[in-house]
Design a protein around this nucleic acid. Structure first.
Lengths: 290, 290
DNA sequence: ACTGTCATGAAAAGAAATTTTCAGCCTGCG
DNA sequence: CGCAGGCTGAAAATTTCTTTTCATGACAGT
């Protein structure tokens, strides 16, 4: 009954004040390297904590469990939840292991970003954007800033293969007006704008809106000013143990969108890709001949 | 002794052919929702698999464990590694959970890619490349293919800020010779080449080598032919539940390298960034005035 | 100093889990 | 058809784990 939705860790914390010395010692041993330390038998964890087995039994009963097996089965469920859900609660490792290699610290940060971004991301938004992108009647325009330009290009390169009517705006803003001129109502402008937001993005978005275009913005957790003009916004967690922001999670969403669009229009796309393959082949032949 | 470095899952797979009917049934039950399903008592898992407890004992002994407790303690260690290491082992996801959203399936795949890539990646390689990139006496050249061009650009954009003497080769191979002409011995050519390997990359690498340049290649698990000419190679896991390959992990390594270079030359970089900020400021003023 | 209360662990009792034994059963082969 | 060999699970035997009981000791209040 107790500890139905709360985690065992929560239960321990909330009872911590009422625990006796040996029980506190045991509780700390359990929380240290939680929840794995509670996987073994009562004998094992009693030894690890340096207390007797009756202490363990008394404590878990004090925490509201029927007995040690009951306690352990709760723990097992938690481990299961943690392991089988990849976006699971990995808050633990965050601060630990400070001296590790930059690769590992980066990996930690990225996983955290991914988890946070996904938990804050509405799948409905994602699906809506995917369906907008899939609509071949809409013209598609991509634009990014100094750093995010590469992401816009990546997105564009793929979408160009999948569907027609796609354009990449150069990161040089002087050429933007001519693109805006060509926009029709219902066209889609995909903007990448993360911090050190570029002023011109707002102007571009405003102009595009006036032409009746829909806007999708990829930005960070603080939000580009252009997001106010957007139909849909992806707020991505971009923090990294670095002087630079991380674009990894943004790229992740881009790739997922590419796949979503691709699979929703596979029949049409298949033909395009075949044709494209043929064109590449021809180009190669050209070169060999020349 | 057995199953020291191999995971329990590996051991089961490698013995699978030699297992009897009931044992196969048990093995599948264990692998399904692995490794959580093996957390309970021998009685529990026997029931879940629909076999008797002696079958369990016989099988784990056949797998090379001393007995069920031995088997289980190995499993515990794996769970521990999985949970406390964020680059956790997520080999599972593959076929399971078909009804989940593309975002989750993608996330699973990316985590798997990241883990596999990192476990196969030698930190010494990483550190060597970082130090090559940090050496300002070496000229730096970046090149990518049709898809990976965006990654080359991303890498280039950052390195250009951090250090001088950096160039991005256009993805159009016709302009490559002039870059090669300018290469000096000790210069560094960073090549991105993933499957549907581009023929020209090998020619480029060969020409660069003749000029005395060092080569670093980012490729996939199968390996670009250009990797044979490289001093260092990053083999990245790129599989995604998509018709396209994933560049997320490649970008991850790029970002980690950027940070490694940046932090190793922070004093010099700081000045450059300040100057750059000033230049951007001026550009903005220009625009406002005009 | 005495007494009651409580925490604690040793040890016994009880309850599981694990392993072993063994008989039934199927399968393949002569 | 009969038999050998191996798979399988019921049940017994063994080991281990879990819970309870109880003696000890620490400590606070009288």
């Amino acid at each position: 009954m107790t500890a139905a939705s709360k985690t065992v860790s929560d239960v321990i914390h909330s009872h911590f004040g009422k625990l006796t010395r040996a029980e506190k010692q045991l509780a700390e041993s359990l929380l240290d390297n939680y929840p794995v330390s509670g996987l073994g038998s009562i004998t094992t964890i009693a030894e690890n904590a340096g207390v007797s087995t009756p202490t363990v039994v008394r404590m878990v009963q004090k925490l509201g469990f029927k007995g040690y097996p009951d306690f352990q089965s709760h723990l097992h469920q938690e481990v299961e939840a943690t392991i089988s859900n990849p976006i699971a609660k990995h808050d633990r490792w965050a601060s630990n292991a400070p001296g590790t290699h930059i690769l590992n610290r980066f990996a930690d940060a990225i996983m955290g970003n991914l988890r946070q971004t996904l938990s804050a991301l509405d799948t409905a938004t994602f699906d809506s954007v995917a369906s907008l992108l899939s609509d071949r009647k809409r013209g598609l325009y991509f634009v990014g800033g100094r750093i995010t330009g590469a992401l816009a290009e990546y997105f564009f390169t793929h979408m160009q293969v999948i569907r027609p009517n796609t354009a990449l705006l150069s990161s040089n803003s002087s050429s933007w007006p001519q693109y805006v001129l060509n926009m029709n109502p219902g066209d889609l402008l995909v903007i990448f704008d993360i911090r050190r937001y570029e002023q011109e993005m707002v102007s571009l978005a405003t102009a595009a809106r006036k032409r009746g275009a829909e806007i999708v913005v990829f930005t960070d957790q603080w939000g580009s000013p252009a997001a106010k003009l957007a139909r849909h916004t992806f707020r991505v967690q971009i923090e990294a143990p670095s002087a630079w922001d991380s674009s990894v999670v943004t790229l992740f969403i881009v790739e997922a969108l590419i796949e979503a669009v691709q699979s929703s229009t596979w029949d049409e796309t298949k033909e395009r890709m075949k044709t494209l393959e043929g064109l590449f082949e021809q180009t190669r032949l050209f070169r060999k001949l020349s």
